[in-house]
Amino acid sequence: MLDQTAGFSKQLLIGQENEKESIATELNGRIGQQLVLLKNDIYLLEKQSHDTNSELFKSITQDIGKAIEEVSIVSFSLRPYQMDTLGLKGSITHLAEDIASDTPGTIHLDIDELDELLNNQAQMNIYRIVQELLNNLIKHAQASSCSISIKVGTHQLNLQYQDNGKGFNTSNPSSGLGLSGIRERCKLLNAELKISSKRNSGTKVYIKIPVEINTST
C-alpha cells in the first residue's frame, strides 16, 4: 500500500508539472502574443489619430505592457522555461533575484554546479523545493534575510535553507510553513528532510539528496 501511495504521489506531481507546462505554453503562445498584437494596434491607432488623446494612448500602452510582464512572470512560475538555457543553478538564481527585487529582505545563495549530476526530473523537483521555500519566506516567515546553499558532497547533494523569521512550532507544522509539497518532492528524490524551527528564532531546513550520475536527459 505504501508503494502504491508513493507511486500515486509521483504520478500526481508529474501530472501537475505537465499541466503547468501546458498552461505556461498557452499563456506565452496565445495570451502573450495577443497582448503584443494589441499593443501594436494601439500604437498604429495613436499614429492615425494625429496625436489627439496622446495621454490616453500612453496610459493604455503602459497597461498592456504591464499585462505582458505579468503574463511572463506567471508563465515562468508555472514552467521555468529558462532552465533549458540557464540550467538549474541559473534558474534558481533568476528566481531568487526576482523575489529579492520585490521584497525588502536579502537572499544569499551559495550553489555548486549541478546540471551534469541530475536528470531533468530531479532538477525540476529541486527547483520546486527552492521555489516553495522562497514562497514561504515571503508569505509566512516575515524574515529580513535568508540563505540557501546547495553543495555537492560524496554521492549526495546537501541543500540547506535558513532564515531569521518568526519560525513555527514543528510539532504542529500546519500552523507554520506549508511543507507538504516539499515533503512529497523529497520522497521522489529519496531525500532526507530535517526541519528545525522555533517561534521567533527562524527556520532551518536540511535536505540530503542522493546523487545518481546523469547519463541522459
Rank of each mutant, 00 (worst) to 15 (best):
Tyr81Ser: 15
Leu86Lys: 08
Leu88Met: 00
His94Val: 02
Pro80Phe: 05
Thr52Gly: 03
Asp84Asn: 11
Ile99Met: 07
Gly65Pro: 06
Glu97Arg: 12
Lys47Thr: 02
Glu97Leu: 06
Lys66Val: 06
Glu69Pro: 09
Ser72Phe: 02
Thr85Gln: 06
Ile92Gly: 04
Asp102Arg: 15
Thr85Ala: 09
Asp102Pro: 00
Ala96Pro: 14
Phe76Met: 13
Phe76Pro: 00
Ala67Met: 06
Ala100Ile: 09
Asp63Ser: 15
Lys66Cys: 00
Gln48Ala: 03
Val71Ile: 14
His94Pro: 00
Leu78Thr: 14
Leu95Gln: 02
Arg79Met: 12
Ser59Gln: 02
Ser75Arg: 14
Thr93Leu: 03
Leu95Trp: 01
Ala96Phe: 05
Leu56Gln: 07
Asp63Val: 03
Thr61Ser: 10
Met83Val: 01
Ile68Cys: 14
Ile92Asn: 04
Lys47Glu: 10
Gln62Thr: 12
Asp63Glu: 14
Ile73Glu: 11
Glu97Gln: 12
Lys58Phe: 05
Phe57Met: 01
Gly90Phe: 04
Phe57Gly: 05
Glu55Cys: 00
Phe76Leu: 14
Lys89Phe: 00
Thr52Ser: 14
Ser49Asn: 15
Arg79Leu: 11
Ser91Phe: 01
Ser77Asn: 15
Ser49Ala: 08
Phe76Ser: 15
Glu97Lys: 11
Gln48Arg: 05
Lys89Asp: 03
Ile64Gly: 07
Asp84Trp: 00
Ala96Thr: 13
Ile99Gln: 09
Gln48Gly: 09
Lys66Thr: 07
Met83Ala: 05
Arg79Ser: 15
Glu55Thr: 05
Asp63Phe: 06
Ser77Gln: 12
